[in-house]
């Protein structure tokens, strides 16, 4: 089952966003987890999630971390098995 990873980010060139995506992607690969990544940088989505801390990481519609890479345990608890 494919998981959805959305990253609310100030923009596609944000180094922190890139670093977090790379790290989560590597973790997913190592654990054979399927996921679709989407970087979101529209004001409407920031308003929808009421977030002021960027990047915010949302896995399967659940906010798992604001401003940092979530721990592996936190990621595992949010993914679809």
């Amino acid at each position: 089952m494919k998981n959805s990873v959305e990253i609310l980010s100030p923009g596609p060139n944000c180094w922190k966003t890139k670093k977090i995506i790379k790290s989560i992607e590597r973790f997913f690969e190592e654990n054979s987890i399927e996921a679709e990544f989407r970087v979101i940088n529209t004001i409407d989505d920031f308003v929808k999630y009421r977030t002021w801390i960027l990047p915010t990481i949302i896995i399967n519609n659940e906010i798992v971390a604001r401003g940092y890479r979530p721990s592996n345990n936190k990621i595992l608890s949010s993914i679809k098995k």
Binding site: R50, T51, W52, I53, I63, R66
Partner: peptide
């Protein structure tokens, strides 16, 4: 009252 603090409190 900063939105960033409120974000983590709401979480």
């Amino acid at each position: 009252r900063t939105p960033e603090f409120i974000n983590v409190l709401i979480d």
